[in-house]
Amino acid sequence: MAIWKGVFPAVTTKLHQDGSVDLAATTASIERLIEAGVDGVIVLPMLGENASMDMVEREMIIRAAVKTAKGRVPVLSGLAEITLDRAKANAKAYESFGAQGLMVFPSLGYKTDPRETVEWYKGIASASSLPIMIYNNPIAYGVDCTVEVLKELVDTPEIVCIKEETGDIRRVTDMYVAFGDRFSIFCGVDDLIVESCALGVTGWVSGMTNVWPKECVNLFALCQANKYPEARKIYRVLTPSFHLDTHVKLVQYIKMGESLVYGAPEWTRAPRLPLVGAERQHVIATITKAVADLKTL
């Protein structure tokens, strides 16, 4: 099974103003990320508006990402469904489209208890040969893959990685104590990356890497090299922007950042609407300040 490590941006799906997929802009952004040195890409994450895409669009996006990557980095796809049968069917489908791994959400339609959560992930793991990253974000989805839950999944070889997004930094160490190196542990929160690296995470699923790929790759590399004084300088500049990654409107915020920094389209699909008023100005000011401060480093 794959051993994932490094920076894996959760790629935004670029859209035209009418809400249709802008495949050219999406693949251009993936190329930009790979050229900047990321170690993998994840298409159709929550940040990629997965739930709003139909299967035709999902197939188009996965195939285009794989074609763009050309084997240089692994291409994972988010898998976000309501029923286990649909999740299993789509795991098979995404494998046939060329995805090399899955970032699997809990059921979007029901808050599973621990026993049900175990069966959800075991069922999806049985549906394809793809390695799986568990997307553990109880703040957003109400389901927590605790250490006790993971103990029931440790013998499922397809599950290779945990995207840790509880917001409780202690969980990283708890998993290492319980499992050693059985799972790759990725930080899933931009504004906890330096703290998570200090505790030994092997990777980072990042939203703001879409905006600043070179800087984020450099930040992670400095942490991995234990060069924390240098890392903190970058982190303190970017943390106000990283806070935008933890807001309910992170899709609009990060797309706005991409638009400001390199001209990508900011459009999202309804019910998400373009930013307006004071909120829009706050995001613009936050990103603009980071751009200026990065130049001083």
Rank of each mutant, 00 (worst) to 15 (best):
T13F: 00
K92F: 08
P74K: 07
A80E: 04
I134F: 03
I82A: 13
T26Y: 04
D174S: 14
M103L: 15
I284L: 10
A25P: 11
E59H: 08
R63G: 00
E165L: 05
V205E: 04
K122S: 03
K163Y: 07
T173D: 13
L297K: 07
R32G: 10
D190S: 01
G200E: 13
A24L: 12
G263C: 08
A93M: 09
A99G: 06
L275S: 00
E95M: 11
Q252S: 11
R182K: 14
I42E: 04
R32P: 01
N218R: 15
L250R: 12
R182E: 06
I42C: 12
K14G: 04
V194K: 01
L273K: 09
Y121W: 08
K151W: 02
A28E: 13
Y94F: 15
L244G: 02
G98T: 02
K151P: 03
K5G: 12
D191V: 00
W4M: 14
V237H: 06
V11C: 11
I193K: 02
M133S: 08
A278R: 13
C197E: 13
K122N: 08
A2T: 15
S206L: 00
T26E: 08
E158T: 12
R182C: 10
K295C: 01
S96P: 00
E258L: 14
K233T: 13
G98C: 09
E116Y: 01
